[in-house]
Design a protein around this nucleic acid. Structure first.
Length: 976
RNA sequence: GCCGGAAUGGCGGAAUUGGUAGACGCGCACGACUCAAAAUCGUGUUCCGAAAGGAGUGGAGGUUCGAUUCCUCUUUCCGGCACCA
């Protein structure tokens, strides 16, 4: 090869690959398959920046290696082209969105092709193609028929700028993810998919996805947000004593009046600590109770104010609320009447839209109770097992009520402790409570009896008691103690004589405050006392044991949950944060929803009428009315037809069997952008099938996707929707698999050279075309693979491309200086290299694979060149990374006729990796003092002999070794 | 606040059953080539020190003959979720 002219080489081979169809997947092959998939892009007008190809290059490398290893590889690409940006682009440039999409697709495709990616373009698809969205509509109809898609009028998130409703998943910090406007809640007729029916399966099946990153699985778990608890009903009493039944439901759901409140709680064990009940301000129950609410004006006012706030405002700032005066809820556990409030911290659309408030054991209730001076009642206390003095078998269990007196001497900053003589104990003053004695009296008495101090001043109670389980060795008892902490300060040193029996037991020690820490004190309660001396009361939100809960006293939280729920006639219930999928958008550029409204009912259109094509319109502008632009096209919207025997609305002028011809109106909402991407990976398998969504046998062969690569930003949305859609298709027998994507990788972001995100706004965007132009596609690809770990965010550095460009040139230089015989070390290193590259690629460790190849090339130059035979193997393993230059070397220089990318991947031979001599480290007292070259597999004695013979190392050895640690072929460590 | 992840030279990073920290690349310095520059090639490059030697993987402890790797505590940064009862 004369000169490395990357432009000529790249164009030549890209054309060759296209003509030869090198990358076409075979639909009828008996070979094992690999399905390698990129998340298909949204072809925006801006084109690609250098961050985008990172994932594409990774799948390209992977699929090229698998192809050479003899797999039938499917590596397709397509376009996710419905959605707002294309529509906005079209509005701005006064062109049809489909034309804008085609232009952008052409740009993207050109950008991808110059990088030399190995897509099978014969399977290219586009979500906006009617032949494609026919099947998106088809799947929706199946959901509709199964009752999974339903019409709703609930208020939803509405973006006033994009003028469309949004799903929960489309929000970012309560704002529209696309334009950043604050969303409003707006009641709107819409289509919703009952995705929550699949919540449990989507959650459970995450456990099977062992090749997904934990972070993505975590996000999904978080998003699904399963919580198990109980639904408990509180009867309402009012001053008019009207008592009947209903449930507090999210406000727009109809229910007949009066009057119960049903709450959802994960902590039924705290039921005895309920001091008030809170309804969401939207609760319809409030209006039902209007006549009983004495401060109705105030309440109504609050509800109005809340409505005006954006969802984001409601989250920010202090909690607010209003009491419904004259209305009470009856705690079913103890029949106590507690006040009822409405407050904006209670969400209408989660659980039952009402909560029982237990301020002692819930942060939010606590904050609210503090603000409005509501009662805080402790019913769960910490329970500690003293592991150093744990319960002994067969000893009797004795329950005790104790006081713990923490006595502080402010004069010398110390605490009063007892050092026990016959036990290894250091304790604070503690003891029992006598009949009729209050806690302070008991504590003062114990301090006096045990230490003689007469003048101590009570400062404060240290909160609720603490349960501890320990063994009292001196009494041979297992104790369950309830200890009440009290805090005192010493007024003066005046002391009484302590009785001799007490004196024999312990010494009195004033312990410096720095020493007064849990490690030095036997009482396991001490961390709590110290915390409560210093800090204000906080809610105890963990599990513990129950107090002040009638018969349930002493049970653990876990035991009490089911028992209390049962006792009050509640039922255990599971709730999810995941909401049903708001599936309609009030915009033009989306898949039409293939339904017809007629006579107050909704009908599917026949499947044979699919695709229902998007009509041409004059104006794509959205309206404020919550109607899509489609509503204005009366010739499309208004239809006449009849209901066939399947209950479908057939658009027709006459009916075949005398069915009545009726007027209908098409659904004018369109589907969200996410619809088309829910199943595109199935269509690549069988892209031109007009009979079914995907041929079942082909699906069986190709599914699941073996490796799926795409951005973390889709961790919850796309990957939730697609998993749901796939499971639905499984349920109706379209696919054989329950999960679509076996392995998932998310490329780390490539930041701009200034460390910020690449953005037009910052003017720091780097274009891949320029890089390919300057350095060549191969150097560009190598750099993206080499720059760092695949998942990490890394700043771009154009200078770095110089390194990979030099590397490619060195490879060319080596090809010009092949030798007849190479040094043994090169053969050995080549086999190690083949092994490393073969293992690194599927592990997505492209950076270390490239580094190893660079190291090898350095070595070849140093060792005077390699043989043609070795060079061929080297070029093959480089081929997935640098497909153009390797093809050139393979064909022009080596003289092959076919593509290197169809050649056979080299095998590595372990037996060729063995070496005669190894370098082993010598440590003396744990410090490296030098290294020795010894024969491979040398024994400890041999090595020790050599160490002693080596002057510069031996001089560190003074005296006889106590111990020698020997790791064969690695190191010898001498301990003196 | 909760849940994840990370922290190593001037920079990106490498190092897995705990065994010679800094591979590879960038940058930098010096040298070769050149009238000169660029490009290219070669040599060197963790820090302190002339050297011997010593220190060193965010910080503090611990386990070990030996710790970037394991344990405890802690700081900072990034990501996700966030009034979800």
């Amino acid at each position: 090869m004369k000169k490395y002219d990357h432009k000529a080489i790249e164009k030549k081979w890209q054309d060759f690959w296209n003509e030869q169809g090198v990358y076409k997947a075979n639909s009828s092959s008996s070979l094992p398959k690999k399905y390698i998939l990129d998340m298909f892009p949204y072809p925006s007008g801006a084109g690609l920046h250098v961050g985008h190809p990172k994932g594409y290059i990774a799948t390209d490398i992977l699929s090229r290696m698998y192809r050479m290893q003899g797999f039938n590889v499917l590596h397709p690409m397509g376009w996710d082209a419905f959605g707002l940006p294309a529509e906005q682009f079209a509005i701005k440039n006064k062109m049809h969105p489909s034309i804008a999409v085609d232009q952008n697709v052409a740009t993207f495709k050109e950008q991808l092709s110059i990088i030399g990616l190995d897509y099978d373009w014969s399977r290219e698809l586009k979500t906006t193609d009617p032949a494609y969205y026919k099947w998106t509509q088809w799947a929706f109809l199946q959901m509709f028929k199964k009752g999974l898609a339903f019409e709703s009028h609930e208020p939803i998130n509405w973006c006033p700028s994009c003028k469309t409703g949004l799903a929960n998943e489309d929000l970012e910090d309560g704002k529209c993810e696309r334009c950043g406007s604050e969303v409003e809640k707006k009641p709107l007729r819409q289509w919703v998919i009952r995705i929550t029916d699949y919540a449990e399966r989507m959650l459970a099946d995450l456990d099977k996805l062992d090749k997904w990153p934990d972070s993505v699985k975590m996000s999904q778990r978080n998003w699904i947000g399963k919580s198990e608890g109980a639904e408990i009903t509180f009867q309402i009493t009012t001053n008019s004593l009207l008592k009947t039944q209903t449930q507090a439901q999210p406000f727009s759901k109809d229910h007949s009046s009066p009057y119960f409140i049903s709450v959802f709680t994960t902590r039924p064990d705290t039921l005895f600590g309920v001091t008030y009940v809170v309804l969401a301000p939207e609760s319809k129950l409030v209006f039902d109770l209007k006549d009983s609410i004495q401060n109705w004006d105030e309440v109504k006012n609050y509800i109005e104010e809340t409505k005006k706030k954006s969802p984001l405002d409601r989250q920010k700032g202090e909690k607010t609320g209003v009491e419904l005066q004259g209305v009470f809820a009856v705690n079913p556990a103890n029949n106590e009447e507690v006040p009822v409030w409405i407050a904006d911290y209670v969400l209408a659309d989660y659980g039952t839209g009402a909560v029982m408030a237990v301020p002692a054991h819930d942060e939010r209730d606590f904050e609210f109770a503090k603000k409005y001076n509501l009662e805080i009642r402790d019913v769960v206390i910490p329970s500690i097992i003293d592991h150093k003095n744990s319960h002994k078998e067969n000893w009797p269990v004795v329950e005790r009520n104790n006081i713990h007196a923490v006595v502080y001497n402010p004069k010398n900053d110390s605490y009063l402790t007892l050092a026990w003589k016959n036990h290894n104990w250091k304790t604070i003053v503690l003891g029992g409570i006598d009949e009729g004695e209050d806690l302070i009296a008991a504590a003062k008495r114990e301090v006096l009896e045990e230490t003689g101090y007469k003048n101590i001043e009570f400062k404060k109670y240290l909160g609720s008691p603490i349960q501890s389980l320990y063994s009292a060795d001196h009494k041979q008892q297992n104790r369950i103690a309830y200890s009440h902490g009290l805090y005192f300060e010493l007024i003066n040193d005046e002391q009484e004589e302590v009785s001799s029996s007490e004196k024999d037991l312990f010494d009195i020690v004033w312990m410096d405050s720095k020493q007064f820490i849990p490690e030095n004190i036997t009482n396991v309660e001490l961390p709590f006392w110290l915390d409560r001396i210093k800090n204000d009361k906080k809610p105890f939100v963990e599990s513990g044991v129950l107090i002040d809960s009638q018969n349930f006293k002493g049970l653990t939280s876990e035991e009490a949950k089911a028992k209390i729920t049962e006792f009050v006639g509640g039922k255990m219930k599971t709730t999810y944060k995941l909401r049903d999928w708001v599936f309609s958008r009030q915009r033009y550029w989306g898949e039409p929803i293939p339904l017809v409204h007629a006579g107050g009912k909704v009908y599917s259109i026949p499947e044979s009428d699919l695709p229902l094509k998007l009509p041409e319109v004059e104006n794509y502008e959205p309206s404020d009315s919550g109607e899509s632009p489609l509503a204005d096209i009366s010739e499309w919207v208004n239809v006449r037809g009849y209901i066939n025997s399947l209950g479908e609305f057939v658009v027709a002028g006459k009916s075949p069997n005398g069915e009545e011809i009726i007027e209908g109106r098409r659904e004018t909402n369109t589907m969200p952008q996410w619809a088309g991407s829910c199943w595109y990976y199935l269509r690549y398998i069988d892209p031109n099938n007009s009979e079914v969504l995907v041929d079942r046998n082909l699906e069986q062969y190709w599914q699941p996707v073996d490796v799926y690569v795409g951005g973390m930003e889709h961790a919850t949305r796309h990957l939730i929707y697609a998993r749901f859609w796939h499971k639905f298709l499984f349920d109706i027998g379209v696919v054989n698999t329950e999960e679509p994507f076996a392995e998932l990788h998310a490329p780390g972001l490539i930041l701009a050279e200034d460390g910020r995100k690449m953005s037009k706004r910052w003017g720091n965007v780097i274009n891949p075309d320029d890089m390919v132009e300057r350095f060549g596609a191969d150097a560009f690809r190598l750099y993206e693979a080499f720059m760092g770990p695949f998942d990490d965010a890394i700043a771009w550095n154009t200078d770095g491309l110089v390194g990979t460009r030099r590397f490619v040139e060195r490879v060319v230089r080596i090809s010009e200086n092949l030798v007849d015989e190479e040094k043994e070390i090169l053969t050995r290193e080549l086999h190690k290299l083949i092994k490393k590259v073969t293992l690194d690629i599927p592990a997505f460790k492209f950076n270390t694979a490239v580094a190893a190849m660079m190291t090898f090339v350095n070595l070849v130059e140093k060792e005077g060149g390699m043989t043609e035979q070795s060079f061929v193997d080297f070029v093959k393993i480089l081929a997935p990374f640098a497909p153009h230059i390797t093809e050139e070397l393979w064909n022009d220089f080596i003289g092959q006729q076919s593509s290197i990318h169809k050649s056979v991947w080299p095998e590595f031979d372990e037996s060729k990796m063995t070496q005669d001599e190894v370098n082993i480290a010598v440590q003396i007292n744990g410090k490296i003092k030098g290294s020795l070259t010894v024969s491979f597999g040398a024994s400890q004695d041999d090595v020790w002999q050599k160490v002693q013979e080596n002057g510069s190392i031996a001089r560190h050895i003074t005296g006889e070794p106590k111990k020698i640690i020997f790791v064969p072929n690695k190191l010898i460590s001498i301990v003196l």
